[in-house]
Every structure is written in C-alpha cells, then in structure tokens.
Design a protein around this nucleic acid. Structure first.
Lengths: 203, 203
DNA sequence: AGATATTTATGCGAAACGGTACAAAATCAA
DNA sequence: TTGATTTTGTACCGTTTCGCATAAATATCT
C-alpha cells in the first residue's frame, strides 16, 4: 500500500470540490450551441446555461473551441451507443434502419426550433476556420458509419454492395436528413424520404 | 412618344451612377461568406472584399441577412443553369451524373480552404436564428432536385424508383458530399463515394 | 447654370465580444 | 489549528461588432 490508499473510488482531489457535473454542463451548453451555432453562441449565454461563471468554464474546458469539441464528442459517443443498441437488435435490417431514422428525425425536428443534427448542422460551417472542429466532426461521422456497418454485417443481404458501401450510403441519408431538418423541412416529409431510401439501400 | 424616349436601353436613373456591378459584388462577398460563414463574416471584411463602403453596401442590399440571401440566390441560379447544361446532354444518365458530381467536388475541394457547398455548409447553421435563410436554402435545394429530376426523366431507366425519388436521392448524395468536403474529406475519397453511389441511384 | 437626386466617403458611438487578474471561499493534508 | 490547493465570484481590459449620421462627390433634369 505504498502508493496511497486508492480504496475503491479514487481519492478525492486536493482542493475545493467542483460544484457541477461535467456531463450535465456539456448537455446544457449543447442546447445553446444547437440553437445559435458555434460562432453566434456567446460565452455569456453559455455560462448562464451551464450555471457556471466564466473562469470556472475556462478552467474546466479551456476556451470556447475546446468546450465545443468536448460537447461534440459527448454527443457523438452517446449517439453511437444509442445506434448500436438498435442496430444490434434481432429485427431485419430494414426495420432496424427504420427505427434509427425515426429516432433521429424525432430529435431533429423537436419543437420549438427544429435544431437538426448538431454535428452537420453547426460544426460544418466552422470547419474552414477551426480545422480541429472539422476533424472532430469527421471522426464522429465515421463512427456513425461504423455503427451502420456493424448493422449491415449482421444481416442477410447480398454481399454486394458491401456493408461498408451500404453504410456510407446510410450515413449520407442521415446527413442529408439532419441538414434538411434544420433548414425547415417538416418531419412528415423527412420520414417519407428516409422510408423511400431504405429499400434502395437494402436492395 | 408621349411617355419619354425610352429608346432601347432604359433611361439612366437620376442621380450619381453606381460604381459597382451587382453580380460582381455578390461573387466577392460569396468568397467571404464561404470562408467564414454568415455569423463570423464581419461587415468590414465584406465591404473590403466588395470594394464598397458600408453605407453603399447597406443602400444597395439592406442588412447583412439580405445581402447574404441575395448572394445565395445568385449562387443558386447559376448552379441550376450549370446543372441543366450538363443534365440535358446526350450521354447516358450515369455519365451525366458523374460529370455533375465531379464538377461539384472540384468546387467543394478547391484549395486552400476546401469550402464545401456554401448552401448546406454555411446557411444551415443560421436557419434556426434566421428562418428566411433556411427557407431560401430550401428553395435552392429544391431547385437542384428539380434539375436532377429533369435529367432522370430524360433517360431510359426503369420507371421505378420514380424520377422524383431518384432525384431526391441524388440530391442527398450531393448534400452529403458538400458537407463532408467542408469537414475535410479529401477529393479522392469524395469521388470514390459518388462514383459508388451512381449505380445504386440508377439501378 | 442651377436645382434635384443618388451614390460615395469619413468617422462615430453604444454595445457586445472573448479572455483574464485577483481575491474570497471551500476543501484536504498535516 | 495551520498551510496548501482548487474552485468560485466580481470586475475589468482591449478589441471588434453593427448600424447610422453627416457631408462631399457625381450625375441628370429644367
């Protein structure tokens, strides 16, 4: 027991404990970034939503770009988990895909602000000025495609197009849906679109 | 000749003539909006790029949002013209589609800033705060799909999926490509993606 | 020429921006 | 209790932002 009694839970750090939970803060700033985008979201709004003062936010997450990237990663991880939960199910792949798209559209068109997909809807515009944001968004989208691919592998579709090709197509449909939702296309139209695409992907 | 000699050219307006050409200004501010997005593009940058002073820009186009929308419409019209020129050609539809995507990718990945598609890449994020921008972007995307549809009608593909369905799929592929280009996906990968999607669309 | 109309140019001014310095508060180690 | 360490709150700095007020410049119409 030389190196400190780590006990079960890791020893509490030295100084004053934090008055917030990281994941909660990330989910609150997510709502601000969703509504305004990265550039138009001010630190005042972000701090107010997070319930933190500015120096606390900075000490915990770094500057605005790093905070945004942390939020993106958080959203991405939770999304992939949710996708895997559905895509590993026992139903035929067409049905699993339908549930993925339906769930996505529900989120994308949630009133009152039809926010669309936060990744393609808010990260894309910043990618030219903030390459790290573009790279992060790309990683997350690649993660989505990998999740789709796992779903296609677990299916009895013909081997061609390959699961990877089908996955990249499913991802493109998802991307386009997330964009069009934010642009104001109503949910019914989005659902009709994804429903008509599924048989094409699974041909 | 009562109502004034309108001659051929309409009579010049009364006061001092403008020192700029509307389409040129729109194409110069387009470059700024492409690089920075709507929110992060400052009026100083826009004026400098346009070669106009601030009050001139305001008198000619209104505020920043109206200027941006005028620019979007300008880009949209020229794009549809270019698409129709290709899509009405004599080649098989697969080949016409390939040329459309190749041309788009060339623009989307142009160095040094891989700007992607200005419509889905910069308008989308603003749609929640500026509904007029979202509506305009949607109109333009619908115009793209109509152009695709005209191309599919002029082809000897099977009647199902319908030309409209094929067009919405082709549009989704275009959208996803424009997004991923801005996010940093290299041109070679984008070309491989669209090339693999064409046979699926034209099945 | 003189009056009228429109566009240019300079520059301002109030507000909002991102980021940080500094001291008070809260906890742990000894 | 005393000192070390981390978080919190207030207040501020310099810069940049958008939009406009005002006056000079350039054209047509009478």
């Amino acid at each position: 027991m030389r190196n400190g009694t780590k006990s079960k839970k890791e020893a509490r750090p030295r100084g004053r404990p934090r008055g917030f939970i990281t994941s909660e803060v990330l989910e609150r700033v997510r709502d601000v970034f969703l509504a305004k985008g990265f550039a138009a979201a001010s630190l005042d709004e972000l701090c107010a939503a997070a319930g933190l003062n500015r120096p606390s936010l900075y000490a915990a997450f770094g500057d605005k770009e790093q905070l945004y990237i942390s939020m993106l990663r958080h959203v991405g991880e939770k999304s992939v988990e949710a996708m895997d939960a559905v895509l590993s199910g026992p139903e035929p792949i067409e049905q699993r895909l339908g549930r993925i798209y339906k769930g996505a559209i529900d989120i994308y068109t949630k009133p009152p602000n039809r926010p669309g997909c936060i990744i393609v809807g808010t990260a894309t515009v910043e990618a030219t000025s903030h390459p790290a944001i573009g790279a992060t968004a790309n990683e997350i989208l690649a993660g989505f495609e990998k999740a789709f691919e796992r779903g296609f592998i677990k299916s009895d579709l013909k081997p061609l197009p390959s699961p990877a090709e089908r996955a990249s197509m499913a991802g493109a449909i998802m991307t386009a849906t997330g964009i069009r939702a934010r642009l104001g296309v109503p949910a019914t139209e989005l659902r009709a679109f994804t429903r008509s695409m599924i048989p094409v992907i699974c041909r």
